[in-house]
Simulated scan of single mutants.
Amino acid sequence: MKLVSIPANPAPSGAAVGAIETPDGVTLRYARFAPPPGRKGTVCLFQGRAEFIEKYFEVVHDLRSRGFAVATIDFRGQGLSQRAVRDSRKGHARRFSDYLIDLETFVKQVVLPDCPPPFFALGQGMGATVLIESAARGHRWFDRMVLASPMIGLAQRPLFGAGPTFARSLRLLGFGRLAVPGGSRHAAAAEPFADNPLTSDPIRYARTAAVIEAEPALTVGAPTVAWTDAAFRTMTAMQRPQYPARLRQPMLLIAGGHDTMISTAAIERFGFNLRAGSHLVIPGALHDLMMEQEQLRKLFWAAFDAFVPGTPLYG
């Protein structure tokens, strides 16, 4: 296993990169980065759909500058982890609980034996949703979670051209491994910058595109019907008021005020119903909060610092 390092996006120094195997036989790529001297604690970083470790090199630097070790994985079906279907450009999963297997395997084989406690989690998009699902099932791997743009509801548009009933019907008809109708094989981050829904920062957007150009194997295009159906079913469950009310995991949800992919209102409703968490909205930010313009990223990191013990704010 390797990390893809390019001049515009160099790999952080001192990385330990390897592979682990899940109980159901899937090979996952992981990376861990030691903390600076004299500090303790690890932030486990979980990416969004179709993302990969290299996209978050700057975030690794941000976390290590705060004194944390960092550990991260590519979820199954993306990055340089094992793909589930022959066409590697399809983002496929049978069900979202498969990602929980990835999470548990990563924690048990990498985090607990090799990383300094206490443990915190930072999730983006789909990765944030997986963390919420894990907490809902009673797992307390982490002291606190910071969840950026969690996939709880959609922002007034169908998911890759498919609605819940349509996706369920296609899956029941045996088309689960097909790409959603109208979906592209190209990664969203490799599309032209103009009108992209991810970030308003052209430099960070171009940086991700350059990594994809250097290593096309990292990319994933549109998801399959099965992934889309699983996503809709997960979001439907999360939008029930009793779902957040039963969570006991301390968590902070952060939404982008201009996110056109994930519903900011759904994140706010979820946050209002939390018993052990809170939420906030960053005005003007799009979906990829950690890849946004610097003034917006500063707001994100200020919220992180206020919530996670061990950051400079706490001394």
Rank of each mutant, 00 (worst) to 15 (best):
A93K: 07
L173K: 11
G183E: 03
R168I: 10
A136E: 04
S134A: 11
E58I: 00
S278Q: 13
L253S: 07
P197S: 04
T27M: 11
L147M: 14
R168V: 07
G125N: 06
E21G: 15
A179F: 10
R177C: 11
M251I: 12
Y56Q: 01
Y30N: 06
I6E: 01
R94H: 14
A121R: 04
A162P: 03
G123A: 09
R275T: 15
F166H: 12
N273Q: 10
E294C: 06
L131W: 00
F193R: 01
T22A: 11
M291I: 03
E215S: 11
V225M: 11
A19D: 15
L103Y: 03
P312L: 09
Q78S: 09
L178Y: 07
R64C: 03
P35L: 02
E58A: 04
G14A: 12
A179R: 02
A128C: 08
H92V: 10
A19P: 07
A230I: 05
Q295F: 12
P23D: 06
F300C: 09
S65Q: 15
L131D: 04
S278Y: 06
N273K: 15
V130R: 01
S184C: 15
G25K: 13
F175E: 07
L172Y: 14
G41T: 03
Q156F: 00
Q78P: 06
L100E: 00
L100R: 03
Q109A: 10
V180D: 04
F75E: 03
A209M: 06
